[in-house]
């Protein structure tokens, strides 16, 4: 502060600013307190409570929580064969959706980022982003009416001697892939866009054909983006219970089991024990992919 200013008392804001300037630790603390406080207290706190209740039981007659420690819920989850079947099915659906989304999204993102003329790019991004805003439920029900007996699919397939597959597991996978496709296209597109043109030229100058450049340069550098997209497609599919109710017929996924236990069955402890399965899977997945740098590509 200059000596001319020093004659009059510094304003409060000026003094706070000075203190913050001199103390980086204080600045960091100020930045971190509110967001970490929120995430830790609200989110981790709630998760912690949920995990705790997985060790409790409900009173069979009153339906109230009995807060005494027991492994019974985890024992039930581990030994009941229905739960295992449903878990395997859910992971299978999530994996299938992720694979389908990647297979469909990669060529589209590649076209958008590297092939389409620059003036077209913006329009294409808008075209891919827009459905993200159109309601999830609306899209699921649009597919329901398309899969139904006298729907669009039947109408379009009948001339070829085929019919709509109807409601069930295949329909669920199709609709989930449809719903989460933009979540895969966008990270891959962003990843491909960041890929410097000069690297591709260098590869070509060194004699690599398009296929070789793709395998040795493009793919390794966009893997983090694909993994980032897969976090969305996998997790969103793993926890879904609404789409499967709409187009899945009688199919049950882990989300349905959790939801019935919270709702109709009023058995929060068992639901909590079931919920630890997707938590363990997703946290394990996040830790495993952290090294690829995927979290910076979300």
């Amino acid at each position: 502060m200059s000596s001319a200013e020093g004659a009059r008392p510094a304003s409060f804001a000026r003094r706070v600013s000075g203190t913050l300037y001199r103390r980086p630790g204080l600045r960091l603390g100020g930045l971190l307190t509110a967001p970490l406080g929120y995430l830790v207290v609200v989110y981790l706190g709630a998760l912690g409570l949920l995990l705790m209740s997985a060790f409790w039981t409900t009173d069979e007659f009153s339906g109230n929580l009995v807060k005494s420690f027991t492994w019974a819920n985890f024992h039930a989850v581990a030994t009941t064969s229905v739960y295992r079947t449903v878990l395997i099915r859910s992971v299978g659906v999530a994996a299938a959706v992720t694979v389908i989304c990647t297979a469909v999204a990669f060529p589209m993102a590649f076209f958008m980022a590297k092939v389409a003329p620059v003036r077209l790019r913006r329009g294409l991004v808008v075209a891919v982003l827009t459905p993200l805003w159109a309601s999830y439920l609306v899209k699921a029900f649009a597919w329901r009416s398309m899969f139904s007996g006298d729907g669009v699919l039947d109408w379009a397939l009948t001339p070829f001697g085929l019919s709509s597959p109807g409601f069930g597991l295949p329909a669920t996978v199709v609709v989930l892939s449809y719903l989460w496709l933009p979540y895969m296209i966008l990270p891959i597109y962003a990843g491909l866009e960041r890929l410097p043109e000069s690297m591709l030229e260098a590869s070509a100058d060194l004699g690599a054909k398009a296929g070789r450049t793709f395998r040795s340069v493009v793919l390794p550098l966009t893997i983090p983006a694909v993994v980032a997209g897969s976090i969305f497609t996998f997790s969103l599919s793993l926890g879904d219970y609404i789409t499967v109710q709409i187009v899945g017929g009688k199919t049950q996924l882990i989300g349905n089991l959790i939801q019935t236990n919270v709702g109709a069955a009023n058995n929060l402890p068992l639901a909590a024990a079931l919920a630890t399965l997707p938590i363990v899977i997703m946290v394990g997945y996040l830790l495993a992919v952290r090294r690829t740098g995927a979290l910076d590509n979300l």
């Binding site: 960091l28 971190l32 967001p35 970490l36 995430l39 830790v40 609200v42 989110y43 981790l44 706190g45 709630a46 998760l47 409570l49 949920l50 209740s53 976090i231 969305f232 997790s235 969103l236 793993l238 926890g239 879904d240 219970y241 989300g255 959790i258 939801q259 919270v262 929060l268 639901a271 909590a272 919920a275 997707p278 938590i279 997703m282 946290v283 997945y285 996040l286 830790l287 952290r290 979290l295 910076d296 979300l298």
Partner: peptide, 29 residues
């Protein structure tokens, strides 16, 4: 700072964990 990597996981957790988990956790909390 210490734990910066943990922060980057903590912040994606609410979107990386299935909505139903977040939902019942918040509801019971």
């Amino acid at each position: 700072f210490f734990g910066r990597d943990v922060v980057s996981i903590l912040v994606v957790l609410p979107i990386a964990l299935p909505g139903i988990v977040t939902g019942i956790a918040l509801s019971s909390a």
